Each structure stands twice: as structure tokens, then as C-alpha cells.
Simulated scan of single mutants.
Amino acid sequence: MNDYELKVYDEVQDWKRKLTRRSGMMNRISKKAQGKINEIIPEKVHEVMTDSIKTMVKATLFGSQMTINRNAAEGLTLEERDELVRKKISTYQKTAMVEGAGTGAGGILLGLADFPLLLTIKMKFLFDAASVYGFNTKEYAERLFILHVFQLAFSSDEIRRNTLAEIENWEERKQVLVEMDWRKFQQEYRDYIDFVKMLQLVPGIGAFVGAYANNNLMKTLGQTAMNAYRLRILQKAPEL
């Protein structure tokens, strides 16, 4: 193992420690409040929302798979792959900011349209990242991994720790994982972004909030994806 891989291994371990820390008090209070709200939402509404998100995500996965360049990073070192992914994160952040500002400035109807548009941008990035790190998204297990990376980026403390454990042991876990828990997937993502996306609908500040929020959400996803794929590549500590 070279010096760069040793450096990456240390970075991934630090990322894991930060990821498993307990959230701040405000985040915990917000999550508790959202949990109470979810309890009073009728079951039929939960079912409709879950089916809608499932359909939307699967359609986005299919579309992203069709447009991916699978040979873009062939023959690159890990350092070169990391640099390419950083550039992609920056590009996708700019795209997400423009989309967020546009829908945020357009009032409630366009603000609501931001949800599927941003979801598409995020999924397209995840397919690009998988390709850069050399994973074949034609395989069902790799598309399932992408959904786990997404869930890892946007979830509460307990779900985040459980998802990290799945990713750390992916070669074993993928043998028994058949399908996502779509109810949990949609609820965690919705709870994670609800507050800031509601602010995006407020006249006068919607454009600023939309651009700022989408930039940060894309940054979070980018860092999560980069480290999740590095984690798979460097399963054990590099030898000096």
C-alpha cells in the first residue's frame, strides 16, 4: 500500500467516528417532533408516500444507469479517482444550487417540484461516483448499495449507525439483502430535509434558502459517497 492509501485509510476512520457521534440537541429534538407527527399521520398516507418515493427513486435509478459512462476512470489510481470525484461533487453542487434557487424563487408549486429534481441530481451523482470507483451499477447489488449510501447521508443517528454497519460488511450483507425498506427510506429522507425545504417555500427567501440547502445536501452526499466507496476499496489498514 502506498502513502496516499494510508492517508485515505486514516481519513475514512475519522469519517466513521464523526458519522457515529450523537447528533446535537436541536437535531434530536427535531427528530423527536417529526416522530410524533409521523405517528398521527394516517397509515394510508404513509403507504401512498412510500409507494410514490419508491416509484420515483426506481425511475431515477433506471434513468441514471442509462446515461452513465462506465469507462470514464479506467486505469486510474485511487488518488486520481478521488480527485475526479471531488470535481464531480463541485459540478453537481453548482447544478443543485441553480436548481434550488430557481424552484425556491418560483413559489410553492415550483418549490414542491424541487423534491424530484434534486433527487434526480443526487442519484445521477451516485451512479457517477460508483463508476469512477470501479463498481458496476448494472449489478443489482451495486444499485442497492447506492440506496444505502443515500440513506447513510440522510438519516437519524440509529439508522445511520445501522446503515454504516451494512456498508462495512457489504460483501456479506448483499447476499441476504433483497430489497430496501422503502418505508424507512422515505421517512428518514423526508424527516432529514423537511424543515429546510419548508423554508424554501417562503416568499422572499426561497431562492437563497433553496440554493444554500441544495448545496449543503449535495456536499453531504458527496462526502458520504466518496468515503463509503473508499471504505469498500480499503477494507483493512494499509501496510507500511
Score class of each variant (00 low, 15 high):
Y92C: 00
A113F: 06
D128Q: 14
D82N: 15
R81P: 02
T67E: 13
E74Q: 12
H148M: 13
S156C: 13
N69W: 02
D114W: 05
S156I: 09
F154C: 03
A129I: 02
Q151L: 14
L147I: 01
T91K: 15
A101L: 09
G106I: 06
P116A: 05
V149D: 01
A141K: 07
Q151K: 06
V149H: 01
A96H: 00
R81K: 15
E142L: 08
K88L: 14
I89M: 12
F115Y: 09
K124F: 04
K122C: 01
E80Q: 15
A130F: 10
V85E: 15
K138C: 04
M66H: 11
L109Q: 06
I68T: 05
E80K: 13
A113H: 06
R143Q: 13
L152T: 01
L147F: 06
A153T: 01
E142G: 09
E158A: 09
K138I: 06
A105C: 08
T67L: 11
G102A: 10
K87R: 15
N69C: 09
G75Q: 12
M123V: 14
L76A: 09
E139M: 09
T95P: 00
S155V: 00
L147S: 12
N71R: 10
R143D: 00
R81M: 13
T103H: 08
S64Q: 03
A96V: 00
E79V: 07
F154W: 05
I108P: 00
D128H: 12
S131E: 10
A101I: 09
T103I: 04
M66I: 11
R70D: 14
R81L: 07
T137I: 09
F145C: 00
L117S: 09
Y140G: 01
E99N: 10
G102N: 10
T103V: 05
L118I: 10
K94Q: 15
E99V: 12
L126M: 14
L78S: 07
S131G: 05
M123P: 01
F115G: 00
R70G: 06
L117P: 00
A141S: 13
L147W: 02
G104A: 06
G111T: 02
S155W: 03
H148K: 12
A96E: 02
I89A: 05
Y92W: 11
